[in-house]
Design a protein around this nucleic acid. Structure first.
Lengths: 201, 201
DNA sequence: ATAAATTATTTAACAGCGTTAAGCAAATAT
DNA sequence: ATATTTGCTTAACGCTGTTAAATAATTTAT
């Protein structure tokens, strides 16, 4: 009867194994190649077993996206903590965002629907998917010396940052980018440029 | 024997019907719902017939992407022609790009792999997919008063424009955007901001 | 005009997909 | 020892893209 815990532990482990297997397959062969039967092969079970841990394939993708958002949020917080000046914090956060995208290419793809067809409506429903927002608007407000964090102008600047960084990431994940040198230049120019333009005085 | 041409005309028409049917289905039900059998239903044939016009499903997607790039290129040229000042041309072109994306949402999705898994390598191989480049670098060069259109700094600025516009489009196609008012603000701020920052004097 | 050859189109099938239901085998409870 | 639950697999359904074989329609040749 004390084996209940042991069994639960095994079950938890299998759940993790499923997610790990899925991500492993995707990293090796891409999102298109991911199938329930392949996951089953890796975890050495048959496909129907997976449905005792996840409602369907989509739920697995959603959980991976969720994990991605959690990692990204953590990276952003870490970057934020490493500086005191709001300008430096902002710069470090967008650099962290950029680094996350390439260190976790497959997760970024599913988080933001790049060459994957995971229903974005469902991904958007994840509460974790809206996470970064408050942290950014807070810092942007500080840089701009604006009190109200819900101000429209802060919102605008947030989207400006996000658009340029996400856009550059997307273009590169599609192999439509330029050299690393130019990427770096675009990224830093944009970030420092926007920061300079929003700083009062 | 003169019916050869008539038959060829019918064949050409069927080919067009296939592409139209595919785009129609996608606009009604999304990329995920597109299947060879559904296309066959619409054109009132059975699925294998399609393979006499296209090598496979991917070829249909590729052709739609190609058509998208051609429309975009035309829109960009038209925008370019409607102004004389390079600054105005540049602004009009990126506005045209923005408008194209929302007027042809489904085409844009497949052209740039947004919630679709059409192999981006194949899309990148389309010669039409690199089209806009020369037109933009030319105008950017004029605004900056730089002769060499292959200059690194022009390349950098081109990617800066493209990143912010494509990023904002992507975010909105994912239903992750803000209000139309803020979209407009971000777009215009970014375009005019970059133009002002690259103009010498 | 009739027979032969070519073309147009469909039906059937294969392998793979996500998913569900039925069946079996092993562990647990009574 | 028997009954019951649990863990897992096999089989199946309807879908997918795609190919091969069979059939219907049309054109060509005689």
């Amino acid at each position: 009867m004390a084996s209940k815990e042991r069994i639960q532990r095994l079950k938890d482990e299998t759940r993790i194994n499923i997610l790990d297997a899925a991500l492993h397959i995707v990293k090796e062969e891409g999102w298109q190649a991911l199938s329930m039967r392949k996951i089953a092969d890796v975890i050495e079970y048959t496909a129907p077993i997976i449905y005792e841990y996840f409602a369907n394939k989509e739920a697995i993708l959603l959980e991976l996206a969720r994990k991605g958002y959690l990692i990204l949020a953590k990276d952003l917080r870490t970057a934020h903590e490493q500086h005191n000046l709001p300008e430096k914090q902002l710069e470090a956060m967008w650099l962290a965002y950029w680094n996350f995208a390439f260190a976790n290419k497959e997760l970024y793809q599913i988080m933001f629907g790049i060459t994957t067809n995971c229903s974005c409506e469902e991904v958007n429903k994840l509460e974790e998917s809206v996470m970064p927002w408050d942290l950014f608007t807070d810092v942007i407000g500080k840089v701009m010396h604006i009190e109200d964090p819900a101000s429209d102008v802060i919102c605008t600047k947030y989207y400006t940052f996000w658009s340029v960084v996400h856009g550059l990431v997307s273009i590169n994940l599609l192999s439509r980018g330029s050299s690393d040198a130019i990427n770096r230049q675009v990224l830093m120019d944009a970030i420092t440029g926007i920061i300079r333009s929003i700083k009062p005085e």
